[in-house]
Computed example of a mutant assay.
Amino acid sequence: MSDFARQQADFQRGILTGDDTVLAEILDSPREKRETLYGVYRYAYGSRLVEALRNDHELLHSYLGDETFDEMGHAYVKARPSEHPNLRWFSQGLPEFLRSAEPYCNHPVLADLAALEKALNDAFDAAEGELLDLTAMAAFAPEQWNDLTFRPHPSAARLDLSTNASAVWMALKNNETPPDAATLEEPARILVWRQDTTPMFRELPAEEAMMWDEAANGIPFGVLCEMLATYDDPDGAAARGAGYLHGWITSATLTAVSTSVLR
């Protein structure tokens, strides 16, 4: 390693870990000590990463306020140093950090709010995909429907929230006072996707969430209807399944359909 490369490595390590070895090779200026000069770089690095967190989690920032968000952000920077040259991916671990780190884990709405914003960001950046339409479904004969399987759009994802974070998100988005944070008796089952260029989400009833999760795993429509029959009126299971499917297609959450014969 050249001497310059070693200095660069020492400089970077000092910023990332607090190692002061590189200070021995930095000169004081006529006005400031080397510790102060080098501290500017340390502060700027952390502040830039916190700014990236603000950009990715605007509503979490609004919920916490400047001071608390920045305090949380710097704690995240220290706990989860950036490992990717693209700042877009720096905030990916924020929901898990908020779920596990004190004092934030004592307020689960924070992790849920971060997870919802992350899912919406991921939906916006997800790959393009062909959209399944109702015309394509009409091409299948009735006897083929039991074997139909579906592929979610690349932007579609499911998450469960233990709190009323979705109501908090909606209030913040509309510049309204958010409701008090509350833990739910049952998780809110959220489907996130991108419609045209806009990230969307909605809460699913338990039955539909089950059907979506199983359909996303390649379970054919006939088996899905059998599973629906265990939730409610067995005689109406097929109709309910067709209704959920119609909603997924018209809201642009599916990209392909196939049958076991075609596979």
Results as ranks from 00 to 15, higher is better:
Trp145Lys: 07
Asp180Ile: 15
Pro178Lys: 10
Ala138Glu: 03
Ser155Pro: 09
Pro152Leu: 11
Asn164Leu: 13
Pro142Trp: 01
Glu128Ala: 14
Ala127Leu: 12
Asp125Gly: 12
Thr135Tyr: 03
Pro154Lys: 06
Glu176Cys: 09
Asp180Ser: 13
Pro152His: 02
Leu148Gln: 01
Thr149Ile: 11
Thr163Tyr: 07
Leu120Ile: 04
Pro179Glu: 08
Asp125Met: 12
Leu131Thr: 01
Asn174Cys: 08
Leu172Trp: 08
Leu172Cys: 11
Met170His: 15
Phe140Gln: 06
Asp147Met: 10
Leu148Lys: 01
Glu143Asn: 12
Leu161Gln: 04
Asp122Asn: 15
Ala171Asp: 13
Asp125Pro: 06
His153Arg: 03
Leu132Pro: 04
Leu134Pro: 13
Asp160Ile: 07
Ser162Phe: 09
Asp147Asn: 09
Ala136Lys: 15
Leu132His: 07
Leu161Met: 07
Ser166Thr: 08
Ala141Gly: 02
Phe150Ile: 00
Val168Gly: 05
Phe124Pro: 13
Glu130Asn: 14
Thr177Leu: 12
Ala157Pro: 00
Gly129Phe: 12
Glu143Cys: 05
Asp133Arg: 00
Phe150Asn: 00
Pro142Phe: 05
Thr177Trp: 06
Asn174His: 12
Asp125Lys: 05
Asn164Ala: 11
Arg158His: 08
Leu148Cys: 11
Ala126Leu: 13
Leu132Cys: 08
Thr149Phe: 00
Pro154Glu: 04
Pro142Ala: 10
Ala138Val: 01
Ala171Ile: 10
Pro152Met: 08
Trp169Ala: 06
